[in-house]
């Protein structure tokens, strides 16, 4: 256990403080729809020319769901996800289709009926925030760049960048482990790998909050890896802030083998585990940004990136 004074000294931000000091004042309710609904986010992204996974189909009605196979055409790998899902709930990744069955990356397979049932659950709002009716997105299944697949036990690692007022303040990579069962959820045992904002290199890794240097299942080094196209990643993140208008947000990205960085989703309530992955309290990054934003409210895209890279280098 740590005392509150120690945590304060380390600059750790707690949920209450995140909500009261950064979320509520900077994220007006009306902007949430741009990020809570992935269709809206993707529409905004398309207007900005951001790279996102290609949408194959949007399933809005049970009738659409019954025509799933028809909508898919001859695509064999894709992702089905709820438009209003959160935290990866309800995401179904299909790698291949064999004899009418849908094969997941883990090797397990679903029948056509089971897949349609999953879609029906999405439509009924089972995974959506607040249980509202929802629609299902069928989109391109990202094939992560080699450097990323090498550090993940199944599943595709994603990059989370937390931003305040458009300044990237902290970044991490989430990689699956055997324990997390291909998921990139930290409290289910995925790895959190801190990334240097200045260079895009991994600097530190934690598993269940304890630091480590090699992947527990794969044994590969986790520290010192260079993420490809880091400039573009920061650029996408800042653009996401500009297009949504949210003051405090997390941007999730994946790096595709062929198309490069893709924006996956924007999160208006990014979690606090990123502090653990980086070993730095968020307060140490947020407070300078608050001050900078106060002094230069009209700072541009490039200035913000430059500021973050300069001040938040590991």
């Amino acid at each position: 256990m740590r005392t509150p004074a120690e945590l304060r000294r380390l600059g750790v931000v707690g949920i209450n403080m995140r909500n009261a000091r950064y979320l509520l004042p900077n994220n007006p309710r009306r902007l949430y729809r741009f990020v809570d609904d992935k269709l809206e986010t993707k529409a905004l992204a398309a207007r900005e020319g951001l790279s996102v996974p290609e949408t194959y189909a949007v399933i809005r009605t049970p009738h659409d769901a019954s025509r799933l196979e028809e909508l898919l055409g001859d695509r064999t790998s894709f992702v089905i996800k709820p438009a209003r899902g959160s935290g990866g709930k309800g995401v179904l990744v299909i790698d291949a289709r064999e004899k009418g069955r849908y094969v997941k990356p883990s090797g397990a397979s679903l029948s056509g009926d089971e897949t349609r049932h999953h879609v029906a659950n999405i439509l009924a709002g089972l995974f959506s925030l607040g249980g509202h009716r929802d629609c299902a997105l069928v989109e391109y299944r990202v094939r992560p760049a080699k450097v990323l697949t090498s550090i993940s036990y199944q599943g595709a690692p994603d990059i989370r960048i937390v931003m305040l007022h458009g300044y990237p303040v902290m970044a991490m990579l989430r990689a699956a482990t055997k324990e997390s069962d291909g998921r990139a959820n930290l409290h289910q045992g995925a790895l959190g790998i801190g990334i240097d904002i200045a260079t895009g290199r991994t600097v530190r890794a934690v598993h269940h909050g304890s630091p480590l240097t090699t992947h527990p299942d794969l044994g590969v080094d986790l520290i010192g890896l260079q993420l490809p196209q880091w400039d573009k990643i920061l650029d996408i993140a800042v653009t996401c802030q500009e297009m949504t208008g949210l003051g405090y947000l997390g941007v999730d990205l994946m790096i595709d083998e062929t198309t490069g960085p893709l924006m996956i989703e924007v999160n208006a309530r990014p979690g606090l585990a990123i502090q653990m992955a980086n070993g730095i309290g968020l307060m140490r990054r947020l407070e300078p940004v608050v001050e900078q934003h106060r002094l230069h409210p009209g700072a541009g895209h490039a200035e913000k990136i430059a500021f973050s890279r300069k001040h938040f280098a590991a």
Binding site: M1, P4, G14, I15, S210, I280
Partner: peptide, 18 residues
């Protein structure tokens, strides 16, 4: 109240400066 939750004292128990 913007202070830490009790559970966070445990959650960040392994937190250390990088």
């Amino acid at each position: 109240y913007t202070g830490y939750r009790l559970s966070e004292l445990a959650r960040f128990r392994t937190f250390a400066d990088a």
